[in-house]
Protein backbone atom coordinates (compact mmCIF):
# COMPACT_ATOMS: atom_id res chain seq x y z
CA UNK A 1 0.00 0.00 0.00
CA UNK A 2 1.37 3.40 -1.01
CA UNK A 3 2.07 6.05 1.62
CA UNK A 4 -1.00 8.29 1.80
CA UNK A 5 1.14 11.25 0.77
CA UNK A 6 1.34 9.69 -2.70
CA UNK A 7 -2.45 9.53 -2.87
CA UNK A 8 -2.65 13.24 -2.06
CA UNK A 9 0.08 14.07 -4.57
CA UNK A 10 -1.50 12.02 -7.36
CA UNK A 11 -5.16 12.88 -6.86
CA UNK A 12 -5.28 16.13 -4.86
CA UNK A 13 -5.58 18.34 -7.93
CA UNK A 14 -8.34 16.27 -9.57
CA UNK A 15 -10.36 16.14 -6.36
CA UNK A 16 -10.03 19.91 -5.93
CA UNK A 17 -11.32 20.46 -9.48
CA UNK A 18 -14.27 18.23 -8.75
CA UNK A 19 -15.01 19.99 -5.45
CA UNK A 20 -14.86 23.40 -7.09
CA UNK A 21 -17.18 22.34 -9.89
CA UNK A 22 -19.70 20.66 -7.61
CA UNK A 23 -19.89 22.96 -4.56
CA UNK A 24 -18.27 26.11 -5.93
CA UNK A 25 -15.07 27.83 -4.87
CA UNK A 26 -16.24 28.99 -1.44
CA UNK A 27 -17.06 25.56 -0.02
CA UNK A 28 -14.47 23.68 -2.12
CA UNK A 29 -11.76 23.98 0.54
CA UNK A 30 -13.99 22.36 3.15
CA UNK A 31 -15.10 19.66 0.73
CA UNK A 32 -11.51 18.84 -0.22
CA UNK A 33 -10.27 18.82 3.38
CA UNK A 34 -13.10 16.67 4.65
CA UNK A 35 -12.62 14.28 1.75
CA UNK A 36 -8.93 13.70 2.36
CA UNK A 37 -9.33 13.51 6.12
CA UNK A 38 -12.04 10.84 5.76
CA UNK A 39 -9.92 9.07 3.15
CA UNK A 40 -6.89 9.08 5.47
CA UNK A 41 -9.03 7.55 8.21
CA UNK A 42 -10.32 4.75 5.98
CA UNK A 43 -7.15 4.26 3.93
CA UNK A 44 -5.54 1.30 5.76
CA UNK A 45 -8.66 -0.80 5.07
CA UNK A 46 -8.84 0.06 1.35
CA UNK A 47 -8.49 -3.08 -0.79
CA UNK A 48 -5.18 -3.20 -2.68
CA UNK A 49 -6.89 -3.37 -6.09
CA UNK A 50 -9.31 -0.49 -5.44
CA UNK A 51 -9.59 2.34 -7.95
CA UNK A 52 -8.25 5.08 -5.70
CA UNK A 53 -9.53 7.98 -7.77
CA UNK A 54 -13.08 6.63 -7.97
CA UNK A 55 -12.94 5.94 -4.22
CA UNK A 56 -11.88 9.52 -3.54
CA UNK A 57 -14.55 10.95 -5.82
CA UNK A 58 -17.15 8.82 -4.02
CA UNK A 59 -16.08 10.32 -0.70
CA UNK A 60 -15.93 13.83 -2.21
CA UNK A 61 -19.40 13.31 -3.63
CA UNK A 62 -20.83 12.55 -0.19
CA UNK A 63 -18.98 15.42 1.48
CA UNK A 64 -20.18 17.78 -1.25
CA UNK A 65 -23.79 16.68 -0.76
CA UNK A 66 -23.47 17.37 2.97
CA UNK A 67 -22.14 20.85 2.22
CA UNK A 68 -24.83 21.56 -0.37
CA UNK A 69 -27.52 20.49 2.09
CA UNK A 70 -26.02 22.65 4.82
CA UNK A 71 -25.91 25.57 2.42
CA UNK A 72 -29.54 25.08 1.43
CA UNK A 73 -30.45 25.35 5.11
CA UNK A 74 -28.67 28.67 5.46
CA UNK A 75 -31.39 31.21 4.57
CA UNK A 76 -29.02 33.94 3.46
CA UNK A 77 -27.37 31.74 0.89
CA UNK A 78 -30.33 30.32 -0.98
CA UNK A 79 -29.60 32.45 -3.99
CA UNK A 80 -25.90 32.31 -3.56
CA UNK A 81 -24.60 30.97 -6.81
CA UNK A 82 -20.94 30.73 -5.96
CA UNK A 83 -19.09 33.67 -7.41
CA UNK A 84 -15.33 33.72 -7.27
CA UNK A 85 -14.29 36.23 -4.64
CA UNK A 86 -12.25 38.33 -6.96
CA UNK A 87 -8.81 38.57 -5.41
CA UNK A 88 -6.96 40.00 -8.36
CA UNK A 89 -9.20 42.25 -10.40
CA UNK A 90 -8.65 40.63 -13.76
CA UNK A 91 -11.12 40.89 -16.57
CA UNK A 92 -13.40 37.91 -16.54
CA UNK A 93 -11.70 34.97 -18.20
CA UNK A 94 -13.01 31.86 -19.85
CA UNK A 95 -12.65 29.87 -16.65
CA UNK A 96 -14.78 32.27 -14.62
CA UNK A 97 -17.44 32.31 -17.28
CA UNK A 98 -17.45 28.54 -17.41
CA UNK A 99 -17.50 28.24 -13.64
CA UNK A 100 -20.64 30.35 -13.47
CA UNK A 101 -22.29 28.26 -16.16
CA UNK A 102 -21.39 25.04 -14.31
CA UNK A 103 -22.75 26.48 -11.08
CA UNK A 104 -26.05 27.09 -12.84
CA UNK A 105 -26.51 23.42 -13.82
CA UNK A 106 -28.86 21.15 -11.87
CA UNK A 107 -26.90 19.27 -9.21
CA UNK A 108 -26.95 15.86 -10.88
CA UNK A 109 -25.79 17.22 -14.25
CA UNK A 110 -23.08 19.22 -12.53
CA UNK A 111 -21.84 16.09 -10.78
CA UNK A 112 -22.00 13.93 -13.91
CA UNK A 113 -20.13 16.55 -15.95
CA UNK A 114 -17.46 16.97 -13.26
CA UNK A 115 -16.88 13.28 -12.67
CA UNK A 116 -16.88 12.29 -16.33
CA UNK A 117 -15.58 15.24 -18.33
CA UNK A 118 -13.44 17.00 -15.78
CA UNK A 119 -11.52 14.02 -14.44
CA UNK A 120 -12.47 11.25 -16.83
CA UNK A 121 -14.28 8.63 -14.77
CA UNK A 122 -16.17 6.25 -17.10
CA UNK A 123 -19.97 6.64 -17.12
CA UNK A 124 -20.37 3.29 -15.37
CA UNK A 125 -18.33 4.48 -12.40
CA UNK A 126 -20.13 7.82 -12.39
CA UNK A 127 -23.40 5.86 -12.24
CA UNK A 128 -22.15 3.94 -9.24
CA UNK A 129 -21.37 7.19 -7.44
CA UNK A 130 -24.60 8.95 -8.40
CA UNK A 131 -26.83 5.91 -8.06
CA UNK A 132 -28.90 4.90 -11.10
CA UNK A 133 -27.99 3.40 -14.44
CA UNK A 134 -25.00 3.98 -16.66
CA UNK A 135 -27.34 5.36 -19.32
CA UNK A 136 -28.77 7.85 -16.89
CA UNK A 137 -25.27 8.99 -15.94
CA UNK A 138 -24.32 9.31 -19.59
CA UNK A 139 -27.48 11.29 -20.28
CA UNK A 140 -26.93 13.60 -17.31
CA UNK A 141 -23.38 14.33 -18.49
CA UNK A 142 -24.49 14.92 -22.09
CA UNK A 143 -27.41 17.11 -21.03
CA UNK A 144 -25.06 19.05 -18.81
CA UNK A 145 -22.65 19.66 -21.69
CA UNK A 146 -25.41 20.88 -24.04
CA UNK A 147 -26.81 23.10 -21.34
CA UNK A 148 -23.35 24.54 -20.69
CA UNK A 149 -22.95 25.22 -24.38
CA UNK A 150 -26.27 27.03 -24.50
CA UNK A 151 -25.63 29.21 -21.48
CA UNK A 152 -22.11 30.08 -22.62
CA UNK A 153 -23.45 31.08 -26.03
CA UNK A 154 -26.17 33.16 -24.41
CA UNK A 155 -23.68 34.89 -22.17
CA UNK A 156 -21.41 35.75 -25.06
CA UNK A 157 -24.43 37.09 -26.92
CA UNK A 158 -25.23 39.35 -23.97
CA UNK A 159 -21.65 40.44 -23.58
CA UNK A 160 -21.51 41.64 -27.16
CA UNK A 161 -21.56 45.47 -27.24
Amino acid sequence: MKPFERVVAEHGAAVLRVCRAVVGPVDADDAWSETFLAALRAYPALPADANVEAWLVTIAHRKALDLLRARARRPESVADVPEIPSVHQEPEDAAAELRRAVAGLPTKQRQAVAYHYLIGLPHAEVAEILGGTTDAARRAAADGISSLRRSLAAEREEARP
Binding site: G12, L16, S33, H116, L152
Partner: peptide, 23 residues
Protein backbone atom coordinates in the same frame (compact mmCIF):
# COMPACT_ATOMS: atom_id res chain seq x y z
CA UNK B 1 -17.11 17.85 -23.80
CA UNK B 2 -13.58 17.61 -22.49
CA UNK B 3 -12.57 20.60 -24.64
CA UNK B 4 -15.46 22.62 -23.29
CA UNK B 5 -14.33 21.88 -19.73
CA UNK B 6 -10.64 22.50 -20.50
CA UNK B 7 -10.50 25.98 -18.86
CA UNK B 8 -11.41 24.33 -15.56
CA UNK B 9 -9.27 21.23 -16.07
CA UNK B 10 -6.16 23.28 -16.86
CA UNK B 11 -6.51 25.71 -14.03
CA UNK B 12 -3.39 26.27 -11.98
CA UNK B 13 -4.09 25.19 -8.39
CA UNK B 14 -0.60 24.73 -7.00
CA UNK B 15 -0.80 27.42 -4.32
CA UNK B 16 -4.24 26.28 -3.20
CA UNK B 17 -3.12 22.68 -2.99
CA UNK B 18 -0.13 23.67 -0.86
CA UNK B 19 -2.44 25.56 1.52
CA UNK B 20 -4.89 22.65 1.65
CA UNK B 21 -2.03 20.22 2.29
CA UNK B 22 -1.02 22.28 5.30
CA UNK B 23 -4.58 22.19 6.61
Amino acid sequence: GAELLAPLADQEQGADLARLHGR
